[in-house]
Design a binder for these strands. Structure first.
Length: 762
DNA sequence: GTTCTAGAAC
DNA sequence: GTTCTAGAAC
């Protein structure tokens, strides 16, 4: 059975001494915690200590502090520890989780057995058989189970094993008994069937002394369950990684070893997490470049901390192939010390090119520990990523930069032709080059850690800066100072409004490169570094968000409209001439179906004010008008939703419309239309060029004008799915993708009522 | 905004 | 050869 395979396999371990383990038993009185510990301790080759609060004080009950003290002492002696107490609530477990800082593995074994069984054991143990005692024991168990909060990986466990019947318990016993001093177990959640059931079915009936036939949790049915059903796999794809773990365990192969490491939030237990922008990055320079791990881990934590607040809910994940990796342990411990939110930054054990398919962790961006030539080869992460991404990555990389100097990073959008994109959902690779401390490699820093640390900081800063630019470009344009937007032809690191400066090392290490930017802060950091002017012109890339401030020649108010652009204006001024084609006419507005709808439902709310040609003309005095247009659009969207509840609507304006006369688009997000034919069509509705009505109203209210995006930039931007943000080479391919893509909408669209859904879908 | 079509890309 | 884009004309 699946569980047997999972639990008895010993991942890796070769040459890597297994760390001491802390196992928190979780279970009601009578669930068999003490028996479990005793059986393991009696038969295991690994040294174990059982910490039991009930007996810790010379056989008398003691305190939690005593338990913690004794546990820490045992761990320091290299012993593994069972924490034998109920641990049913998260809060009760929390203090023990701090033991995780001591370079140990934190496991939970959940004895989630039928309440009936716990109660009857409890009653027997007290030796006070009878209604009163029995009733009391039942009440205690029942009340404890009501408060039960099943442990989660996010609490800091690297492994959680759920047992729901005696055979599960036996399998768990075998697992821990068979665990030698040097063995490790795969990480992740195993055996969970019904995470939400707080009180087991049947307990109330039991209390009423009604004999209940075994319910759905009977052994027979669970035998089949133990191979995770599809729903479980989707919810908790960690389990998917188990196949790899076990199948490769014999060879102790590193490659297939994909498991979740400590501090990871239960990956994808919430499928919406798949949507969170995530950067997976390897530790830079600590492998082949032999950078000191202590120093490197300090720098990682330092720069991560600096960036987390800028990144919003986006996540950074440090990935390493090796389970017992020193750098992961160091970073993990330091992250815990600094109280870094494990939701936003965690470590992960796995192959960076197979995080999604192999580990259930979706990362839209991965970092490559590149070489200065930005070429495949050399082994390690660089070879793996180039190989997994196929030739597409090399081509795309070449477009962005020819080479890279230490401390820099370059963002490369991955085409959908790349397998890394199609099977792993990676949309960008960021190449980053760290300092080299290895004398056998070119440009060694010769032990100069002052310079080395500086460059490593720089490398991480450039990397995260690159990720930040992707996150921002994919969400929406930040208000005010917008730096840049991702586009095929732009390389977007650091602040490049001014003439970009590229730094390089001293002349003996000078590397020719272009299109690579360093973070602002490093421009100040000249010292031994020269600055070299860029040989590429970024003005196109930078020209993304010219705020339309009505100044200069060709200001918005003086825009010249072609004759073909007057159709809406003519309708607004003389609706009676087009009466049959309009959905609704009021004194202020007209509602009509777009002549060339770009989706199943695509209507316009047209303002009837002469002189209000487009959004650039709108100011605070029009606030009420905007609100009324929004309300009108909403009314129609809701009307359409009654006819087809599967539709999702978005209301907004084009930054620079083609047709004269202010009009609000109300468009369903299927984009299922023969009229959607080119890049401009797509990008005007799915990028920051499309200004959500709710945001426009807010901006007009706060600043008196709306942020508008440059018309040309629409054509520079890649074609990306509006749901999963994947990139596609052309319109036909994009269209075939979107007919099938059911990914949730990006998080920013789900906020502030930007999307209008049927009530049942909200 | 669309249509048409040359020629680039595949 | 076919598919797809992008620029001109309207």
């Amino acid at each position: 059975m699946d569980t047997d395979v999972d639990d008895t396999c010993k991942a890796g371990g070769e040459g890597e001494k297994g760390k001491p383990i802390v196992v928190l038993l979780v279970g009601a009185p009578g669930s068999g915690k003490s028996t479990f510990c005793d059986q393991v301790i009696r038969s295991s080759a690994r040294p174990w200590v059982r910490i039991c609060q009930d007996t810790i004080n010379n056989g008398q009950s003691g305190t939690k502090v005593q338990c913690l003290k004794n546990a820490a002492r045992a761990l320091k002696e290299g012993k593994s520890v069972f924490i034998d107490r109920c641990n049913l609530e998260r809060e009760q477990r929390a203090d023990f989780m701090r033991l995780g800082a001591l370079q140990v593995e934190m496991h939970a074994v959940v004895l989630d057995l039928p309440a009936k069984l716990c109660i009857s054991r409890s009653v027997k143990r007290t030796g006070h058989e009878g209604n009163l005692q029995g009733g009391k024991a039942a009440a205690v168990v029942n009340s404890m189970l009501r408060k039960k909060e099943l442990p989660k990986l996010s609490e800091g466990f690297s492994r959680i094993l759920f047992c729901q019947n005696e055979s599960d318990v036996q399998a768990a016993l075998d697992t821990y008994i068979g665990l030698g001093a040097l063995d490790t177990l795969p990480h992740g959640c195993f055996g969970q069937k019904n995470p939400d059931a707080k009180v087991q079915l049947g307990i109330m009936k039991f209390l009423k002394k009604v004999d209940v036939p075994s319910n759905a949790r009977s052994n027979a049915s669970r035998g089949q369950d133990s191979a995770p059903p599809e729903a479980t796999e989707v919810k908790n794809p960690i389990c998917e990684g188990r196949g790899n773990v076990s199948s490769l365990s014999d060879t102790a192969g590193e490659e297939g070893k994909i498991s979740e490491d400590l501090v990871v939030d239960s990956v994808n237990q919430n499928s919406s997490l798949n949507d969170v922008p995530t950067l997976a990055f390897p530790s830079i320079s600590t492998s082949d470049f032999q950078f000191n791990h202590e120093k490197a881990s300090d720098i990682i934590i330092e720069i991560v901390e600096e960036f987390l607040h800028k990144l919003g809910n986006a996540r950074l994940v440090l990935v390493d192939l090796t389970h017992g990796s020193k750098i992961l342990s160091l970073v993990r411990a330091k992250a815990a010390q600094k109280n870094i939110n494990p939701k936003n930054f965690f470590t992960f054990v796995g192959d960076i090119t197979r995080l999604h398919s192999g580990g259930g962790l979706h990362c839209n961006v991965i970092a490559n520990a590149a070489n200065w030539r930005l070429k495949p080869g050399g082994g390690g992460v660089n070879a793996a990523i180039f190989s997994a991404a196929g030739p597409a990555l090399e081509v795309a990389t070449k477009e962005q930069a020819k080479s890279l100097s230490p401390g820099n990073a370059v963002v490369v959008p991955l085409s959908s032709a790349s397998p890394l994109y199609s099977s792993e959902g990676v949309t960008h690779v960021i190449h980053v080059l760290g300092p080299n401390m290895n004398p056998n490699r070119p440009n060694c820093l010769d032990g100069d850690y002052v310079k080395g640390c500086k460059i490593l900081r720089m490398a991480y800063t450039s990397l995260f800066e690159g990720f930040l630019s992707i996150v921002r470009s994919q969400e929406k344009l930040p208000k005010g100072s917008i730096e840049k937007i991702g586009s095929k032809s732009s390389v977007l690191l650091g602040h490049s409004e001014d003439a970009p400066k590229i730094f390089s090392l001293k002349s003996d290490q000078k590397i020719k490169r272009d299109g690579v930017y360093e973070h602002e802060r490093w421009k100040k950091c000249k010292g031994s570094l020269n600055e070299v002017g860029s040989d590429i012109n970024v003005s196109r890339a930078g020209k993304v968000n010219a705020n339309n401030d009505n100044t200069g020649s060709g200001g918005s108010n003086s825009k010249v409209w072609g004759s073909w652009a007057q159709a809406l204006y003519n309708i607004a001024m003389h609706p009676e001439k087009h009466k049959d084609d309009l959905l609704e006419i009021t004194d202020d507005f007209i509602v009509l179906t777009d002549l060339y709808p770009k989706a199943k439902k695509h209507i316009l709310v047209l303002a009837r004010y002469d002189g209000l040609d487009h959004l650039a003309d709108v100011s605070k005095e029009h606030l009420q008008l905007l609100k009324m247009m929004h309300a009108m659009g909403l009314k129609w969207a809701e009307k359409f939703l009654l006819e087809d509840a599967s539709l999702v609507f978005r209301l907004g304006y084009h930054s620079v419309p083609s047709m004269r006369q202010l009009h609000l688009h109300v468009i369903s997000q299927d984009f299922d239309s023969k009229h959607l034919k080119n890049k401009k069509h797509w990008n005007t509705f799915t990028t920051a060029f499309f200004r959500d009505s709710v945001d426009v109203i807010e901006e007009i209210n706060n600043h008196g004008k709306a942020t508008l995006m440059d018309e040309e930039s629409v054509l520079l931007m890649e074609l990306r799915c509006h749901r999963c943000r994947s990139a596609h080479p052309n319109i036909p391919r994009l269209k075939s993708h979107i007919t099938n893509c059911r990914a949730p909408f990006p998080a920013n669209l789900l906020q502030n009522g930007r999307l209008v859904l049927a009530p049942s879908n909200t």
